[in-house]
């Protein structure tokens, strides 16, 4: 239970961090909050030869809404800062609601959103929430950058679209249009455990009360966070009744691809999705009123 030796670099600015990553390539890993990477290193599942520690890059510890109302979360912004921000709670309640389910306060005091997303555990809440909120990720390298939609970022269990030299430097979460309601629900064995199934719902009502937009994203529901697109599409134009939610749940259960775990078989995970999807949708619909 002790990490293998590594060379430790703790640069103080982004350019230096990216230069180190470019120099060491696949030998190096970025260290953010360390709440996924350090356990993996303690088990020696991960043995990076070089750690580029981002904890001293003050500029990456940022959290702010820009002029368009997009929330910009820097790579070193810890969960705790996000969940305690009153403006985030008001404008993006889905994020704060789901954060309460992420591990425990001790983990959230150090863990970062960006680190969690790069770890890309399909059982984790945040990747699914990023899909539901149509987040975009700014990926930086020493000689450039690109912006990728969250849905193109997650490639498989613990696998992302990040190139060897890239850092997920910033998460951009667009403002929710007026009339939008959101809800997050999950079932886990114990408080703070990974979800056996989790559902993030985003619904928008038009002026007459009918649904004009819907998104449903699930965690622990496949090799990546899963968007239930047919289920979401089925809700558009409806009055968001219990029957509409049941129909959407049936579609969602067919769309997901749960892999099972020691805690829950795929069949049980599908059952949970069938229960949680209508409840999360009802929550979102109520809040969209």
């Amino acid at each position: 239970m002790k990490p293998a030796p590594f060379a430790w670099h703790a640069p103080e600015d982004l350019a230096a961090a990216l230069a180190l990553k470019a120099q060491h390539g696949g030998e190096a890993q970025f260290l953010a909050g360390g709440q996924s990477l350090v356990p993996a290193m303690n088990f020696r599942v991960a043995q990076p030869a070089v750690l580029v520690d981002l904890n001293r890059v003050a500029a990456l510890d940022s959290l702010a809404f820009d002029a368009e109302g997009t929330l910009r979360v820097g790579a070193m912004c810890r969960y705790r800062r996000i969940e305690r921000d009153a403006e985030v709670a008001r404008r993006l309640p889905l994020l704060v609601e789901a954060l309460a389910e992420v591990a425990h306060p001790q983990i959230r005091n150090r863990g970062t959103l960006a680190g969690n997303l790069c770890h890309a555990d399909p059982a984790s809440e945040m990747p699914a929430v990023m899909l539901a909120l149509e987040a975009r990720f700014r990926l930086c390298r020493h000689d450039g950058e690109r912006v990728l939609p969250a849905r193109d970022f997650f490639l498989g269990p613990l696998a992302t679209a990040l190139a060897e030299e890239e850092m997920l430097a910033e998460i951009q979460i667009p403002a929710l249009p007026p009339g939008t309601g959101t809800g997050f629900l999950e079932v886990a064995r114990r408080r703070g455990d990974y979800a056996m199934m989790g559902v993030a719902a985003v619904l928008r009502r038009g002026p007459e009360g009918r649904c004009v937009a819907a998104r449903l994203a699930l965690c622990s529901a496949g090799p990546t966070p899963m968007l239930a697109e047919r289920a979401a599409a089925s809700l558009v134009g409806t009055r968001l009744t219990a029957e509409d939610f049941a129909a959407a749940a049936a579609l969602a259960v067919a769309e997901i691809d749960p892999m099972g775990s020691v805690q829950a078989s795929p069949a049980y995970q599908r059952h949970l999705a069938g229960v949680l999807v209508p409840r999360a949708l009802a929550l979102a619909a109520e809040r969209a009123a």
């Binding site: 239970m1 360390g34 709440q35 303690n42 306060p105 001790q106 983990i107 005091n109 150090r110």
Partner: peptide, 22 residues
Amino acid sequence: EHGVCGACTILWDGAPVRSCLA
């Protein structure tokens, strides 16, 4: 030593964190 049990919790600038994960 992998962040699950909490036995190693200390205060880091006043906030409880796992000392086995730093």
